[in-house]
Simulated scan of single mutants.
Amino acid sequence: MDLYEHQARELFADHGIVVPRAEVTGSPKQAREIARRLGGRVVVKAQVRTGGRGKAGGVKLAADPADAELTARQILGMDIKGHTVHTVMLARPVDIESEFYVSYVLDRAAGRFLAIASAEGGMEIEEVAATRPEAVARVPVDPAEGVTPAVAARIADAAGLPARTVDVLVRLWDVLVHEDALLVEVNPLVSTRDGQIMALDGKVTLDDNARFRHARRGDEADAGHDPREAAAAAKGLHYVKLDGEVGVIGNGAGLVMSTLDVVAGCGARPANFLDIGGGASAQVMADGLSVVLSDPAVKSVLVNVFGGITACDAVADGIVRALGTVRLTKPLVVRLDGNNAERGRALLDERAHPLVEQVTTMDGAASRAAHLATTP
């Protein structure tokens, strides 16, 4: 369960981490009043659960209350990577001296948590890691020990953070443990000119298995939930919206994850994760295709199925049925292999839709879908 930035900041404040004063609204007129209460000059930030808000124009500085109303009006209703902005957060500006990056994330493969920190905050950590990997420290955290002041001091030293960040590192770990989080991220964590350490932004993902302990926050998060995720959940589908342009459908979480990696390796970005399961019916396939095609960011769709419990002819029948109810405007690349693959391919050949093509290998299908999505 991903929280909005303002929810993450509330958690930080609950655990003693300093955050600038801020309020949230969905009304431009209320934005004017909030700006007046906060002192006039404010930062207006779109509240959507995705990155890249600043580059998309979803984070702007307003000089006064009237400008705050105008800016809120411009940002509300924006589409940022497929997420519609329903609310904005107005925050008091901070006089920044330096910016840092800090996060704790679950490392499932190693069975532990990983602290990731850098003295170069305020920009995408992936960019820093790619161009200057030595600037990003990765420190394993034993869940049994946690982040004690001594461990926090090691993290700060490894990343080149000032000693006064140690207390915040300990408190962020408290957020992760006590709030059942899988990810806690602050970018930027800043040092102000008067010596304070403050969290200017926040990203928190709570464990869905602990949702019953966080009912209020879950309800608030779902209130602005991506409509495609909500529609998929209502149909019993395992769908997660991502930030790319290639829609991905597969049967089995492992196969879908592998498909996402192959698509990325072909120079495109997956637009979603959608697992139709190991025993999916033709109706499930039709429902899944409808959800993926409803995403305006999708430029092509890749269906990658290895027939086992789910026979390939059932998948093909689902595609054919979906084409009868959904107007296909994006190219659809299908790879069928395994149980009843030949019969499934024949069904698609019989339908002969001009935007549907078949490729026999996963690598080939991913390459074709990536090409179709990224070629003007």
Rank of each mutant, 00 (worst) to 15 (best):
P93V: 02
G202D: 03
Q30T: 14
R321I: 01
R108N: 09
P149M: 11
S191R: 13
D142F: 10
G51R: 05
D222P: 02
A159W: 09
R193W: 11
I116L: 12
A115L: 01
L11T: 09
F273P: 01
M78E: 01
V240H: 13
R36F: 13
A369H: 08
T50C: 14
A135F: 14
H225D: 15
A152R: 05
R37A: 07
A117G: 15
V170F: 04
G111V: 08
A210E: 11
R269M: 15
P376V: 13
A286D: 08
A316F: 00
A13F: 06
L106P: 10
A316T: 03
G244N: 13
V168R: 05
T259G: 05
R154S: 14
A156K: 01
R21K: 13
R351P: 05
Y101S: 00
R335F: 02
R53G: 07
P140C: 08
I197N: 09
V298D: 07
G344L: 00
A46K: 02
L76F: 04
A322S: 15
V136N: 05
L274K: 03
D363C: 12
R73E: 15
N340Q: 05
A129E: 10
G121C: 07
G307D: 00
H6S: 08
G52M: 02
R9G: 09
Y101M: 04
L237T: 11
M1L: 09
V356T: 08
T165D: 10
D14I: 08
V298L: 05
G202I: 07
P140I: 06
G40V: 13
L176N: 06
L348Q: 01
L289D: 03
E33V: 00
S294H: 10
G160F: 14
G16K: 10
K45F: 11
D287W: 03
V139S: 07
A135R: 04
D275C: 03
G146V: 12
D174G: 11
L293F: 06
L328Q: 08
K203T: 08
M89I: 05
A66K: 12
P149H: 12
V246K: 00
L332I: 00
E350Q: 15
G224L: 09
G288R: 01
I17A: 06
A56M: 14
E69Y: 14
L90F: 09
A156G: 08
N251M: 06
G244F: 08
S258M: 14
G202H: 06
A156S: 11
R368I: 02
V24D: 08
L355F: 00
E127K: 11
S258E: 13
G202T: 12
A31V: 07
A373Y: 10
R154H: 11
R217G: 07
N272Y: 00
E126C: 11
A152D: 04
E145K: 04
E127D: 10
G278C: 03
N339C: 05
R37V: 14
G54M: 07
K299Q: 11
W173V: 01
L237M: 06
M198E: 09
L323R: 12
L183H: 15
V301M: 12
A253E: 02
